[in-house]
Design a protein around this nucleic acid. Sequence first.
DNA 1: AAAATTTGACCGGG
DNA 2: CCCGGTCAAATTTT
Length: 292
Amino acid sequence: MEGYGGGGGGGRKQESALASELAQVLSMVRELEARMDQDPPAAARELCGELANTVDRSIRIARSCCGCPPADSPPGHASDGNNNAQSRQVRVASVKDMAPLDDGLSWRKYGQKDILGAKYPRAYFRCTHRHSQGCLATKHVQRADADPLLYDVVYHGAHACVQAAHPSAEELRRELMHMHPGHAAGGGQDQDQEQQQSSSPRAPEVELDTAEQGLQLQSGLLDPMTPYAFAAPTPGDFFPLLSPTGAEWQMMRSSHASAGNGTDLVDHHQFQFDDLFTNAAEPFHWDLYAAN
DNA sequence: AAAATTTGACCGGG
DNA sequence: CCCGGTCAAATTTT
């Protein structure tokens, strides 16, 4: 529950966090540069995904530092209308890169349903600490019809659990390793597997299974959401990277003055790193819209 | 053995 | 009655 700088207060922690993220971006870019000549496809793609995630975090951090949180609700989307569900689109680079889906919190899947016009099923998750801490946060994840690398994630409710605010030491350690893949001090598990909660989730193998976030979905064979509970590879210390923690929610709420009945905010965020490489013009798209 | 996922049944709103 | 969301038992994974 520490406050992130919403509005003003600053964030020193965030500054350093931003620096770290940026440093990561730099090293990733270098590596990408290096790999560019050798094997272009796979490896590079994976890296791009990580890069995208890192940049995403950086942007978030920067925004919260600047006190310009939800400054983007361009087209008039009643951001404060009535719903409080927060949704975002997350794109993964490859099947192995589900970092974007990993919002740093542990979720437990409790259901999956086929949705009317959707091609892929929607997976339902609730906070793992629902019973132990009464955390009522939930989220739904669904692959976009067209692009298997894109996932729509909708969050409901604020997190009341502590994990949301305090990442474990292990998570931090992991994050560090992630940043410096060269020295694997102890185990190295960086990219490959780790599926559940504490690391980068990975996708199922190849066939189609069921649900969401997975691996190389580009072929469209992977499933959208799969077996994995996202975990928190990133230090939440900095702040809620991809998922709205209770604190962030409050922040957003107050800034949006989402009144109404509020309980659900919708923040639709679309990150397309792909374009970053294909169209130098628009690296990312941030959209906030209320919906639900 | 414990914890998480899979799935179909069940529920409530439109 | 259809559809989306949740429950819960069976099953799988750790």
